[in-house]
Design a protein around this nucleic acid. Structure first.
Lengths: 248, 248
DNA sequence: CAGTGGTCTAGACCACATG
DNA sequence: ATGTGGTCTAGACCACTGT
């Protein structure tokens, strides 16, 4: 019996900051996932179990889980159960990798790391809302589609959040590594897109000419608990690929 | 009594193409909105009314309306009722206008129409999935933020869908005009973004130099009933603004 | 005050997956 | 056969809105 309550005493109605029960349940479950009680890919307890554990009705648990499904935090399968979402499959990679060939199928990009270092980087610290004195791990890498370099990017994270990150073999899907090895699960990102001119250095890496137009994607990624955990600036050739965005 | 049924005879279970009741209700309500039974901004019948009208429980109506809320098709206000979403307020404009100043508040763009014509335009017909012989209305215009031209765009729609569109004073928010005057409500769009080099003509309009990097936004807009109703290509200066995208 | 949507509960039946 | 999530129902109480 792990009651969600109190917080909602029927007495003190009209209180500001009131959250409905199903949202408290959601937050409780998210917290447990963030804390590693259930790891990505793992099966959650069934709805009736959670309901009795938390002291609420099954319908309330269902509403909480439905919200989490909409947020891509869990996957539900009829007859199987509810699973913590994984980042390692193609679908989850594509959730954040929005570069698509103009013609032909979507494909998984390759990665080629150029440089990894730990530095004081005030600009990154500012983006991540942490002290400018905090050490930052900086990763520079290229990404390839169909064997051709399309992206040059620079990734900045707080070193203290990812101890030993520099020594890891940087995998294709960084967010999977963050989640598996450091318990930091990226669930959403805010991106700013611009068209910029390629520098000489970028042009060389990307097989373009200086001054060629590149798509710059400036992304801040947020973890389950709402912290800013990564700042990434990608510069992309878009002559044969495009950035796909669905607006609703 | 306007039954939703049959379609779901309990007898023929396991039928492919099965849709749950609440989705049939949703589709029925969407159809009525698309058909103009309820106009944008208008109040819908209450949940109990809809439930008895459609011969389902209130909970099922609620689930349908919740989906429509998530799709920005209706707005619900406790104590007031459920309203058909409007496109004319700033929030709805911003749903599709994603260009934001790098510093400072979001603002509503001005529009300056350069040219309106009706032509045979095979490329547009292909994008809209209609016959290449269908006449197309082409609108070319500039959009300004803080008095400065930031966007040059070319908009193509099927002339038959918008009779007399050329004679209209083109307003700031085209989608509001589509909805009010032609009963075509845009509810979502698919966009492809690229970085391109400005042509001499674009450079002149945008106050830039030929070859300067521009952000190209290639958008197909869909109406409530799922038809492709507009193809629009925008070319944007992004030196002091950016395209904002939230990924989840 | 009456009527609306928002929340919460309890229980039924279904389709799907696994043993 | 059992247990899971998916759907559907019925009814309760609440908070908000207008009269």
């Amino acid at each position: 019996m792990i009651q969600v309550q109190p917080e909602n005493e029927r007495v003190a109605t009209n209180m500001i900051g009131f959250r409905p029960l199903y949202r408290q349940v959601r937050d409780t479950l998210v917290r447990r996932i963030a804390d590693g009680v259930w790891r990505p890919g793992q099966l959650l307890p069934s709805e009736p179990e959670l309901a009795t554990d938390l002291g609420v009705s099954q319908g309330t648990v269902r509403k909480a889980l439905d919200e989490m499904t909409a947020e891509n935090l869990v996957t539900r399968r009829q007859g199987r159960g509810t699973f913590v979402a994984k980042h390692d499959d193609a679908r989850m990679l594509f959730q954040f990798f929005k570069l698509v060939p103009d013609r032909g199928e979507r494909e998984v990009p390759e990665s080629k790391v150029l440089r990894v270092s730990t530095e004081i980087e005030p600009a990154a610290a500012k983006q991540l809302h942490i002290s400018v004195a905090e050490p930052i791990v900086v990763i520079e890498r290229l990404r390839l589609l169909a064997g051709t370099v399309h992206v040059a990017e620079r990734i900045c994270v707080q070193a203290a959040l990812f101890p030993g990150l520099e020594t890891h073999e940087a995998p294709n899907n960084l967010y999977d590594l963050y989640s598996r090895s450091f318990g930091v699960t990226v669930c959403r990102a805010s991106e700013r897109l611009k068209a910029v001119a390629a520098t000489a250095n970028e042009a060389e890496h990307l097989g373009a000419s200086p001054g060629d137009p590149l798509l710059e994607v400036d992304r801040v990624a947020f973890s389950l608990d709402g912290r800013r955990v990564e700042w990434r600036v990608s510069r992309c050739r878009t002559d044969s690929v495009h950035y796909a965005s669905d607006v609703r």
